[in-house]
């Protein structure tokens, strides 16, 4: 599945590790949430990156992860559908309130015109549908240049332009 990560299209080399299998010593690995939260979660190791996946329709799961970011390189949020916007709030809370600094990835049946919103809420990677046309997705990043409200990204809001950066610091 193609992956749009920090603006570049790459092959997705993250793989899921099933609940009952040993965690490989190397690679980019997504663990079930319960396994990450368990007492014997795998620790950091050179050549290995670890991530977890949260269901995008269960916002309370964010709270379970708080305090367990050490050694966690990626959080994937799987949207249940493009109309289910809970993942946008989950992402902002992970970034802005809880300070998660790793890769935040959106998955699921999303629409190209949601890319800008995803990015503004703190996602820096999106797993694209297999049939996605990259141009359709990237188009939405360019088309609207004005943002009115502060969010999880660094985009300068109209307030900063109107009143100078100090006004919104």
């Amino acid at each position: 599945m193609p992956l749009l990560e920090r603006g570049r299209l790459i092959d997705d080399d993250w793989t899921d590790v099933a609940d009952d299998l040993p965690v490989p010593a190397r690679g980019r690995l997504i663990l079930p949430l319960a396994r990450w939260l368990s007492d014997h979660a795998p620790g950091p190791q050179p050549g290995r990156s670890l991530g977890v996946r949260l269901p995008g329709d269960r916002p309370t799961e964010v709270d379970r992860l708080v305090g367990r970011f050490d050694g966690l390189d990626l959080i994937a949020i799987r949207f249940a559908g493009f109309r289910d916007g809970r993942g946008f709030s989950m992402a902002r809370l992970l970034r802005e309130r809880h300070g998660f600094a790793g890769i935040l990835r959106a998955e699921g049946p999303l629409l190209p015109d949601q890319l800008r919103f995803l990015q503004r809420c703190g996602f820096d990677a999106v797993a694209l549908p297999e049939v996605a046309r990259l141009a359709d997705w990237q188009r939405f990043l360019r088309e609207i240049s004005v943002v009115y409200q502060p969010a999880a990204d660094a985009a300068a809001t109209v307030l900063a332009y109107r009143h100078g950066a100090r006004a919104v610091a």
């Binding site: 946008f88 709030s89 919103f117 995803l118 009115y148 409200q149």
Partner: peptide, 11 residues
């Protein structure tokens, strides 16, 4: 202005 194209509250 705040609600226009709000990234979190459009869905």
């Amino acid at each position: 202005q705040w609600s226009t194209l709000h990234p979190e509250f459009s869905f």
